[in-house]
Design a binder for these strands. Structure first.
Lengths: 337, 337
DNA sequence: CTGTTAGCGCATTCAG
DNA sequence: CTGAATGCGCTAACAG
């Protein structure tokens, strides 16, 4: 199995090396007949370009990286799926990198990762999206990057975000139609931008319908199952017990399920619960969880697409927004009381 | 920020290009004083070798890939964590690849992935580990690969597996000590090698204690939450209701929890449930799940280590076994009945 | 539209 | 133990 190079193809097709290069790279200025001849030669020889050589000669690596910091496995997998799909069709490779947004080594980690142009572009996922030192380190390397769901520095780079409001409004509308007037809210960590947006969307949707924020029973959570249990127990033991609880992510909603089970409160007959994320757990609990779907894979694919297309550099930051979708399942029912 | 090359370093240190190369690659035959001079120059100039150039010149890419086929997110993340850790310390990159073990395109997918030595080595995860066409396609590319938890063709390549038996025995011992004598078993898919081993380990551990396989109530499952619910409902409605159920993975154990909740059976007072995997879900259910921990990340790291060390080729297939560990949590209690 | 000439940055011969 | 020459396979200027 000898190595077929671009020279072999050129010889076979009776053209110059450069013409082959042009065909391979879909450049313009090639006559159709010549292009065909080259393609035939490529086919016959089974020629595959060497990425190492292209990378060296062109100064591009055809590799894009994703930075993760210990997010949920489901979220991570969806992100990877989206990026992978985009990379696959474009002949790019996807490399995974882990860094801790909260540690001092962020900058050093990024320097290590960005050494000598191994990456053509970088995609950042929360919470690294909002990690200032990380952004600075990346920018020092003069590499294009796209942030997914940034919560801070909105115009600092290209980004892909979701537009939650409409979907949250749909959800509130659904609960309202079921007769719910007493609402509970399980918040996420204060540091997390998404937590704020979800809360604000919920409160303002209710305000539109005449429910003041002060009337909503709120409990703090940490986006974890355990914190959801505590928040659920808290809310269900208050004087003014809500008939519908919105947990700002599915993990906590699942915790509210557990709290309800402990207190003998039946879902959805005695209590309606909704989540956010449409994560895998939403279909794994019983009854299945009414929630809001985030187009995570789609966002990731869009981010990768930007990088692959060579767009979205610091000179022309592009900001895309993709819509969330209300997903009706079994955890909501008519209000009784 | 100009590019520092090996020539710059050589000039600065007053040595030849080759000597710098030797130092960088930790080769022998370099005088200590010369080595020091070079290292100082490298430090002063902030020299970082170009991976593209090394890849081209040396014919190695310093990249290792992992093949996934839609496994659980938790499992996937642990695998990635393990490999990443090994890669990080060795200066390798980790690229992710997805293929479907069940489709005809496996071979074509692998050809696409293995084009022109973009990868120095490949790690296969289940169920691709046992996909014959995939193995053939990989071997045709003459690339080193390591399989994680293979269920077939044991000596065909290097591999890293677990040794489940001792841990399953510990688990059975625990249940036995609690007084359980009526056991239920939720099996995994027939095609899945791990499902067999877990079942066999369980049955033989019971046999050692005098319980015949025929006395164990078995139900079929598919390693999914939903199938766990069905299996749980099935087992709990039989004439001979078990007091302890072993689900061959955590997802199904969680399904058994749901089934118990529906039937009003209390865990662990009326029923003990155990799982396998020690996945994230094991700590997210209530009560927390007694299960068996698989050293997944460790296995993955070992596989990557083999590849990075240049070992484990088809000429010297290395087979490593790592032990599982019984993890006691809250889902098991004394038998009453 | 097409071909020629140079490198990209490094590792690998092979001499000294 | 060290250094000079050669080439990995390809793309980027330039010429024609």
């Amino acid at each position: 199995m000898k190595k077929i190079t671009i020279v072999d193809v050129a010889k076979r097709a009776g053209v110059s090396m450069k013409s082959v290069s042009r065909v391979v790279n879909d450049e313009t200025n090639v006559r159709a007949t010549l292009r065909d001849r080259v393609n035939i030669a490529i086919e016959e020889l089974g020629y595959k370009p060497s990425f190492a050589a292209r990378a060296l000669a062109a100064g591009r690596s055809f590799v894009i990286g994703v930075l993760f910091d210990n997010p949920s496995p489901h979220y991570t997998m969806k992100i990877q799926d989206g990026i992978y799909a985009a990379c696959k069709s474009a002949g790019y490779q996807l490399v995974i990198e882990h860094v801790s947004a909260n540690r001092d080594e962020v900058a050093a980690d990024i320097d290590r990762i960005l050494i000598n142009g191994r990456l053509d572009g970088l995609i950042l996922t929360p919470p690294i999206t909002d990690c200032e030192p990380a952004l600075c380190a990346i920018e020092a390397h003069n590499i294009r990057y796209v942030r997914i769901s940034p919560g801070a520095f909105p115009a600092r780079s290209s980004s892909v975000s979701t537009n939650d409001e409409a979907a949250v409004d749909d959800m509130v509308n659904h609960l309202w139609d079921l007769g719910h007037r007493k609402f509970g809210l399980v918040n996420g960590p204060a540091m997390h931008a998404a937590a704020h947006w979800r809360r604000n969307g919920f409160l303002s949707a209710l305000a539109k319908r005449g429910i003041e924020p002060a009337e909503v029973q709120e409990a703090a959570g940490e986006f974890t199952f355990q914190s959801g249990i505590l928040a659920g127990l808290d809310l269900l033991k208050r004087d003014k017990v809500p008939t519908a609880i919105f947990a700002t992510n599915d993990d906590m909603a699942s915790g509210v399920f557990a709290a309800s089970a402990q207190l003998g409160v039946h879902i959805p007959n005695q209590l309606s619960v909704t989540g956010f994320d449409d994560s895998w757990i939403a279909e794994s609990v019983w009854p299945s969880l009414t929630t809001i779907h985030q187009p995570i894979a789609e966002m990731a694919a869009a981010a990768a697409g930007m990088l692959i297309a060579g767009r979205g550099g610091s000179s022309d930051p592009i900001m895309i927004h993709q819509a969330c979708r209300f997903v009706l399942r079994q955890s909501t029912g008519p209000a009784n009381g």
